[in-house]
């Protein structure tokens, strides 16, 4: 809050300013009588400059602005720390708008309260809202159609790191996910073989040598990806056999992951969105059709 000294500084300055404007208006608007043609003494080629008072309409505009300022300063905060007779503040107006918006949202979401997530996914009105929420909050990583990007999962395919049940999706949205593929510390030669072996798991052709050497190297991967490389949704370890690649399918891309490890991170949204919105978003993700 403003200290008294500064408050008076503002009050005195503003008051003096308004009084000066009033004086200026009065001083310059004195009528000089209808016929009196006072000139400034300037002449150019015989043309003289009149020294007339302001036109009436102009004068009245000034009067109106002064009256407006006095009324304004009485109603609203402006005169130092005087709060104004309306007690208006920026933050209270903001809070009112927030409360109003919250009430509108609650009323809107009430009609979806009794529907399950799978039912919501079939509901056009709910999905129109779901799409808007998705575009505002999810599309930056998962793409505007949920198609994903390298390192950011596609939500339309059938590959799910953590599972596709509505409850799992709600959990993912609420708490986020932190996936960790560790750096395996393998020598480069082993990394090259293992990368090609992983390609082989997904159905690409690999040499006999890679098959044999890779199988023993893959032992270290089984604790997360499973003995057959089918992944583990409890850990978020991807299925390596479905030929769907989060970080690319070339040997080079896989080698980078094996050599350096990788962290997947989905932020949590429970502090950003209400549970109503999260439920609708989960339904929207279900409606994208990934099975």
């Amino acid at each position: 809050m403003m200290t008294d000294g500064w408050s008076w500084f503002v009050i005195i300055l503003v008051t003096l300013n308004i009084l000066a404007m009033v004086w200026l208006l009065l001083a310059t608007s004195k009528s000089k009588g209808a016929d009196e043609a006072d000139t400034t003494g300037h002449t150019w080629d015989g043309i003289k400059e009149y020294n007339n008072p302001l036109p009436r309409w102009w004068l009245w505009l000034f009067v109106i602005t002064i009256v407006f300022s006095v009324v304004y300063l009485y109603l609203y905060p402006g005169m130092g720390s005087f709060k104004g007779s309306l007690d208006w503040t920026q933050s209270s107006q903001y809070e009112q708008e927030v409360a109003l918006n919250r009430a509108k949202q609650d009323a809107y979401f009430a009609e979806f309260a009794d529907l399950s997530i799978s039912e919501l996914a079939e509901n056009d009105k709910a999905m129109a809202t779901g799409r808007r929420l998705f575009l505002n909050n999810c599309a930056t990583c998962h793409g505007s159609n949920g198609q994903g990007a390298k390192g950011f999962p596609n939500l339309r395919d059938d590959d799910w790191l953590y599972g596709d049940s509505p409850q799992t999706i709600v959990q993912t949205l609420n708490n986020g996910r932190a996936g960790l593929m560790p750096d395996l510390g393998l020598p480069n030669s082993s990394v090259a073989i293992l990368a090609r072996y992983v390609q082989g798991l997904a159905g690409q052709e690999v040499t006999e040598h890679v098959q044999q050497k890779g199988k023993s190297l893959f032992a270290v991967c089984t604790s997360c990806h499973g003995p057959e490389g089918k992944g583990n949704q409890a850990l978020g370890a991807p299925n390596l056999t479905d030929n769907i690649w989060l970080y690319g399918s070339t040997a080079q891309e896989i080698e980078v992951i094996l050599a350096n490890g990788v962290q997947g991170n989905m932020p949590s949204f429970n502090t950003l969105l209400s549970q109503n919105e999260i439920k609708l978003l989960a339904a929207y993700v279900v409606s994208l059709g990934g099975g």
Partner: peptide, 9 residues
């Protein structure tokens, strides 16, 4: 709001 990897890419 986003991960470091997101910002990098």
């Amino acid at each position: 709001r986003y991960t470091d990897e997101w910002h990098l890419a």
